[in-house]
């Protein structure tokens, strides 16, 4: 214990209960900012792409979404957004859910939802692109 944080004023009990810094506090903060910056151009592009689908029939939509540049932009948009929204919802959960059991269920559900949404969207885009 003492070799990990020799100058810490925290008690051994506090450290055992994980009531303190895990030394990774800025990781989520940084990744939230990074995906936020990426999302600025990607969101604008995605809005334009989706609006161009309005009023078009299925064949035309498949052609647009399946084209290589559109598919790449949509993949980047989905992956960056899903990562960003998972961090954001985690912050919301940590702010408002104080019961330990509920909090862990919500945090787990947040990851499940984000991963499922991301994977489903990626699969659909790849399917449209490869024309399977």
């Amino acid at each position: 214990m003492s070799d990990r944080a020799p100058q810490s004023i925290r008690t051994p009990l506090g450290r055992v209960r994980y009531l303190g810094s895990a030394r990774s506090g800025t990781k989520a903060f940084w990744r939230q900012r990074m995906t936020a910056v990426a999302n600025v151009p990607l969101t604008i592009a995605a809005i334009v792409i989706v609006m161009s689908l309005l009023g078009r029939n299925h064949a035309a939509v498949v052609q647009i979404l399946g084209s290589t540049p559109v598919a790449i932009i949509m993949l980047l948009f989905i992956l960056s957004s899903v990562y960003h929204m998972r961090i954001g919802m985690q912050v919301i959960i940590e702010d408002y859910v104080h019961d330990d059991l509920l909090k862990f269920i919500a945090l787990m559900g947040n990851t499940f939802f984000s991963v499922a949404v991301g994977l489903a969207a990626v699969f659909a885009i790849l399917k449209l692109s490869f024309g399977l």
Partner: peptide
Amino acid sequence: GGALYFGVLLLVWWLIAAAIGPNAYAALQ
């Protein structure tokens, strides 16, 4: 932010419907 979290389901529906076929896409349209 919270609304967009669930709103992404709309986009996923859009993409999956297009990937499934004309009938599924007709429902979305």
